[in-house]
Write a protein that binds this DNA or RNA. Structure first.
Lengths: 239, 239
DNA sequence: AGCAAAAAGTGTCATACTGACAACATGTTT
DNA sequence: AAACATGTTGTCAGTATGACACTTTTTGCT
């Protein structure tokens, strides 16, 4: 089916039918300095030269989609050890002016600790790399704004219905910190007492016994209960 | 980028980098004779010759993914006027033994009325076409069983959290019929009184004034309230 | 030492939703 | 007319929700 030919000393890949290029793009969220941020890369080349874009790239010839997303993230941003989940696949014929490109978007969460440790940077072929406040974004390349909108929607949904907030926090955190994550992502204030009641009732976090001192009154520190990470709140609609 | 060459009188398509083939497969659900069914096609050729597979095919060179799904559905099964939503994209390198294939799976619902009218049939290149009870499936080709499992999961979820059941029923239906749809899809019995209370409270259906006579006591007929079709039950987790 | 400021922590009440549960109504069949 | 099949209806106890304000503990300043 797939044939390799040599034309002017360059390998080219030939098929009986036209094929689209397939890329994997990643929306990497992080919670830093009281902001929900995404990682973007400034495009060094046309099209959309100078515009900001989601990190991503072509899938390898023998690479699973998930693995491709991990690899791209590692290559372009030096980030590993993330939570990754497939988001959506976009494929409008004209979304890339150069050639037909189908993009499988992945959605990634990185804990604050990892960000600090991993020294996220822009890599070789990618240009400048930078975290952007989700509520104050630059103009994006391609249809990346739409993808990002959808990712934010998914993040919000996940936050409300699963125990996902953890992935954005360090391993020990206070309830106030957790609440700020929720408020920032949902983009609205929450009632402190109701928030605590619900989070604690959900049984997904537990006190570590330690305290965070420094600010004013010391706050109790919590961690996530082991397996509660992706506990899909199995709420049934019909009993 | 994409170059077309002629080799032995056949057009071939050449690229600098290897590209996967991209297909769209559709899980078409229908509710018939008290069963939740999916449409499958028996493969006429290798690989998996004789096994059953989801309808689908290659995306056109200038075709959106959604449009491709619609077209394939129309071509292979003569079905149009369906609810279609993207499900998931699979791309393990060895999922098709012939060549690298990435498949965007779509999830479709067809009302009982449409099924009757549209005379679903197997088309030209596809072999035999047949509805299968979701709980009594044959052995499937490729990784289609996994895709189907995921589709069923999504269907169940949608059923519980959105007003999606309608799409599987005729335009007028009784509450008992609706309940049977729910019970069949969720694969468990539901309490009649609680079911009615909830469905009616949700405000997604309304009585048409007509009655279904014939069996025993005539049953009140309902229809779905206009815009309630994809009303994502906007239940908030934090007030 | 005393006071103000900042953040942490805590409880109640009215309402709505949930799930478990059984009897009666209306038409058909024999 | 009696048996049968299906449709329709309500209660009650338990739990979850959302609205709402004050006290506690520490820091920082004077």
């Amino acid at each position: 089916m797939g044939e390799i030919q040599l034309v002017q000393d360059k390998a080219i890949y030939c098929y009986e039918h036209p094929r689209p290029a397939v890329t994997v793009d990643i929306i990497l969220f992080v919670f830093q300095e009281e902001q929900l941020r995404v990682l973007l890369i400034r495009r060094a080349n046309e099209p959309f030269k100078g515009k900001w874009a989601l990190p991503g790239g072509f899938i390898g010839e023998n690479e699973d989609l998930y693995d491709a997303a991990l690899r791209e993230l590692k290559e372009e941003t030096n980030v590993s050890n993330v939570y990754l989940e497939q988001l959506y696949t976009v494929g409008k014929p004209d979304r890339d002016p150069r050639t037909r490109v189908i993009t499988v978007a992945y959605f990634a969460l990185l804990s604050a600790e990892e960000v600090a440790q991993q020294e996220v940077h822009g890599a070789s072929d990618a240009g400048e790399t930078r975290w952007w406040d989700i509520y104050d974004l630059p103009e994006l390349a391609f249809d990346h704004q739409q993808i990002l909108d959808y990712a934010l929607q998914r993040l919000r949904w996940k936050l409300e219905w699963t125990a996902l907030g953890f992935l954005l926090l360090p391993s020990e955190f206070t309830l106030s910190e957790l609440q700020r994550v929720y408020e920032t992502i949902l983009n609205e204030p929450l009632d402190k007492r109701n928030f605590r009641r619900k989070i604690l009732a959900a049984g997904v976090i537990e006190p570590t016994g330690n305290m965070r001192a420094g600010d004013h009154r010391p706050a109790r520190l919590y961690r996530f209960t082991a397996t509660a990470i992706e506990l899909e709140q199995a709420r049934r609609r019909f009993p």
